[in-house]
Design a protein around this nucleic acid. Structure first.
Ligand SMILES: [Mn+2]
Ligand SMILES: [Mn+2]
Ligand SMILES: [Zn+2]
Ligand SMILES: [Zn+2]
Lengths: 125, 125
DNA sequence: CTATTAAATGCGACTAAGTTGCAATTGAAT
DNA sequence: ATTCAATTGCAACTTAGTCGCATTTAATAG
């Protein structure tokens, strides 16, 4: 038994779902990352099967613990739920950045997430 | 020989690429549609192979004739290039709407397209 | 601490959007 | 009408993600 991250444990317990090593592992990685990650990004650092990964991701989304979006590379990216913000995806280098200083509202629409595609500052000619 | 859409023909000719029936067919459908379409949406109305479809789409994108984005349903959506605008994708009913009245700028970033995910007015409880 | 059981996991097979190699066809130009 | 590069159709392939099912594990009750 290791000294597990108690913050992560609490996050899971508070949702009344089983506290499993797979769930702790996924959430710990997402917490350390400062940007959204795909299964591809994470798989080297975890030992679980991809079915387990995606089933837990689905659970986390249902429990409103994470949010996710589709990038331009056909992969889905995940991050722990924080204050709402947009994401910029560079179509040159595929980097993803959290954009906190814009906010978009549309009357009568409920907005869950916003993705902006383009060329990041580093990739301008 | 039919009376082909001369506007579409011109669109192709102006780019100095071959005027083929496949290209005219794709562009005619995209022009008639008032919203972005996927291959899935279009395939019933065209007879070409999907490889031909996607190769022409790639060509159109390279020639800057259309733009495209990834939806939440893992499909890519295409539309004729017009004035820049955002797209709203409903995560309940998967409908897509062109949103012309918001505009987003980020200093030092070049923005190609913006997608907003959420719940459309029709899908509010 | 042990038994019970629903939930979670691993594995392998599968799905579906999109891509690629190659031989046959077509359209623009001479 | 001839030529030749560009385009097409077909079949095989790629890849992120999903699913069924047998096994394991975490929570709970005794
Ligand atoms: Mn973010
Ligand atoms: Mn549009
Ligand atoms: Zn970049
Ligand atoms: Zn809707």
């Amino acid at each position: 038994m290791y000294e597990h991250n108690t913050k992560i444990k609490k996050l899971i317990k508070d949702k009344n779902i089983k506290l499993t090593t797979a769930r702790v592992a996924i959430l710990e990685i997402l917490e350390k990352a400062k940007k959204p990650l795909s299964y591809e990004d994470i798989k080297v650092d975890i030992s679980m099967d991809k079915a387990t990964f995606y089933r837990n991701i689905a659970k986390f989304e249902k429990e409103d613990m994470i949010n996710s979006f589709e990038s331009n590379d056909k992969k889905r990216y995940f991050e722990l739920k924080k204050e709402p913000h947009a994401h910029f995806i560079c179509m040159e280098c595929n980097s993803i950045q959290c954009i906190k200083n814009i906010d978009i509202t549309l009357p009568n629409y409920e907005i869950y997430n916003v993705t902006i595609n383009g060329k990041c500052p580093d990739c301008q000619i």
